[in-house]
Amino acid sequence: MKKKISELIASKYFSFFVTVILFAILYGVGIGMYKGFMKPQVFLNLFIDNAALIIVTIGITFTLLIGGIDLSVGAVLALTCMVLAWLLANTGISVFAAIALVLLMGTAFGAIQGYLIAKFDLQPFIITLAGMLFCRGMTAVISRETINITNPTFVAMADFRLSVGAGFVSMGVIIAIIALIVAAVVLGFTRFGRNIYALGGSESSASLMGLPVFKTKVSVYTISGFCSALGGIAYALMMLTGYNLHGMGMEMDAIASSVIGGTLLTGGVGFIPGALFGVLIQGVILTFISFQGTLSAWWTKIVVGALLCVFIIMQAFITEHKSKLTAKSSLEENS
């Protein structure tokens, strides 16, 4: 038993376990405080409300894993919604062509950012910050007003509900789950995925080991661009609008989710299921607020910050003591 525990503590998934346990505790507290938390649909709503964020977080996790970052995700998401809404409102093309087009656009945008970063050794923070400015600007240039999506096919897709047990999920959730699975498999079971980890562990070593550094870097930003566009579609399914301020500050939420789920910003360490729980934790915090219902706008911000803080400090505290725990248990094993 003791050995099991010490192995668990030493395992690289340790911070993931901590996240999951803390999530369970948080949810448990929720059930204790508000009856409503017991309803399965409340749990499923965590997914429905955060489908877009989950998808975007997957993309950003790829970039964080190589020690990079992608600040453009929120803006690409907004641009995707806007272009999609504009295409459906002003041209006769089919919904699927429009979706394919915006996905292509996001992917290409990511690829360009990746190329600039990898080819010219530019700092990802700056390039993707510029990317964010660019996409936000373009969104506003297309329209400063909200464009509603009224295309019947698209609306039907948005209204689609798949029932699971006692509740239901939306199209966005299905997309998110598929994206999660694909991402987890790519990262865990393909050479490309492992090269990403190697690159994040040490870029110079990866290069000396003969791994394709350039190609991997460009691909990672391309994937992030694709995920942002895909997230944009999930977002559009939920909002049925294109709007300049969609996904404002989403990059920070995504980074926070990923990090809370165990990703290290220095690269090389991270785990897709962890990123999912990172999103869910933020979702639960917001659910708390909505159940409370009486908080003013500013108290909401403060409480979200405070809960985030409690969570992060707890995580840091446990990780900090991890080394001591391992040392102790290994000593006991010896003697």
């Binding site: 050479r191 980890y197 190697a198 562990g201 110079s204 000396l208 080991m209 791994l211 090389g268």
Partner: peptide
């Protein structure tokens, strides 16, 4: 010149 964050086996075969 290996990657500290990967397992021993992976470092050999990556």
């Amino acid at each position: 010149n290996l990657c500290p964050n990967l397992t021993v086996a992976e470092n050999i075969f990556i």
